[in-house]
Amino acid sequence: MSYQVEFEFSPIYELVNSLELFVHKRGIKNVDLGVDWVKKVQENLDAASVELGDAKAIPCFNYLYLLIWQSPEKEDINKFLHWLQTLQPGNLYEKLFSYVSDPLPADLEKIRNQYVKLLKVWEEVYFSAFDLDILDILRESVMEWDDKREHEEDPVVFVEKVSGGLKVEPYEGLQQIIMTPTYHTSPLITTRKFKNIVHIQYPVDAPETAADQPSKKLLRLSKALGDDNRLRILKLVKEGPKTFTEILQHFNISKSTVHHHIMLLRTAGLISAYHTSECCSEAFVYRPLGMEELVDSFNAYLEK
C-alpha cells in the first residue's frame, strides 16, 4: 500500500493562504510574518475603507483549495475567478463530492459567491502588490523537488524531507498527497485531509539579502536548541514516537509550555509529526535530518 506525491504551484494558492491567515490568524504567533504583518495589512484596509466581514461568517476554505487543484486556470487570478464564478451548482457538487467525507452544504453557490467576492477584494487591496520574486521562489521550489521525486523510492521519506517534518504513513483509501509551497504561513506545515487525498502546504523561506544576516532556518534551529527542556524532549522522542500526553508526563511544566516547546522543535525541523492512521492521531519523533540541516545552514552562513 502506498500513495502518489504530486507537486502543485499556483499564485492562487498563496492568494488564498494569505487571506486565510489574515482572516483567521490561526497560529499567527508561530508564523514568521507575525502579528506586525496583520497590523500593517489592517492599516492598509482601513485606509482603503475596505472590510472583509466577520471571520465567523466566512466559509471554510477547504472547498476552495480543492477547486484550485481542479481548475484549468491556475496561473492567472482573474481567469481563475472567472472560471470559479461560472461554475454551476451541479458542477461545484461534482468537483467536491468525491473528496469530502462530510455531507456537502446545500448552499454551495452562495459559498462560491463569498469566495469570489473575498478573493477579488483581497487581490485588489493586498495581493496585487505582493512581491513577485517570492512567487518565483515558490515556483522554483516545486520544480526542484519535482525533479528529485523520481529518485526517491519511499514516498513517506520524501514527504517528510520536503515538508521538513511531517510523516504520513499509507492507509487504506489514501491515494495521493499534493505538495504546495507556501510563504505566508512559514515555518508552519499546513495539512488538509480529504477522503482520498491529503493537501500539504510546506514552508519556504525567502532568502536573506544581507551577507551578515543568518537564514531564518539557522535562527530557528539555534533557538530551538537553546533550552534545556527542549533538549530533554529531543532525547525523549529519540527513543521512539511519543504523543503529546506522553511527553507531558515527563515534565513538571504546564501544557501550554510543553506545546510551545514542541512547536519550536517542529518548526525548526528537529522533530517530525508522525501520522500513523487515517484519523491522523499525532505522535512526535526525533528527526536526525534536522541536525544535518543545522550544520549545512551554519556552514552556508559562514561561507556567505
Rank of each mutant, 00 (worst) to 15 (best):
L219H: 14
V156S: 12
V162W: 06
T190G: 10
L166G: 13
H199F: 12
V162E: 01
E172A: 10
I177L: 08
V162F: 06
V168K: 07
T185Q: 07
Q201V: 15
D205C: 07
A211Q: 14
V162S: 01
S186D: 02
H199E: 07
D212K: 12
V156N: 08
T191Y: 04
P203L: 03
R192V: 06
I197P: 06
I177S: 02
L174P: 00
L188R: 02
L188Y: 01
E172C: 11
K217E: 09
R220K: 14
G164Q: 01
T182M: 04
T209K: 14
E169Y: 10
V159N: 05
L166R: 05
K216H: 14
Q176Y: 12
V168E: 08
Q201C: 14
A210G: 11
S163L: 03
Y202S: 03
P187N: 00
K193I: 03
D147M: 13
I178M: 08
A206P: 09
I200S: 03
E150Q: 11
E208S: 10
A210M: 11
S186A: 08
K193Q: 05
P181V: 03
I197M: 15
M179Q: 08
Q176L: 10
L188I: 03
V156A: 08
L174H: 04
K217P: 05
S215R: 04
P203H: 05
P181Q: 04
E153H: 14
I189H: 08
Q201A: 10
T180V: 13
P181M: 02
S163T: 11
R149N: 15
I177R: 15
K217T: 09
S186W: 11
E169P: 06
L218V: 00
H184Y: 12
E172H: 13
S186Q: 06
E150R: 13
K167I: 11
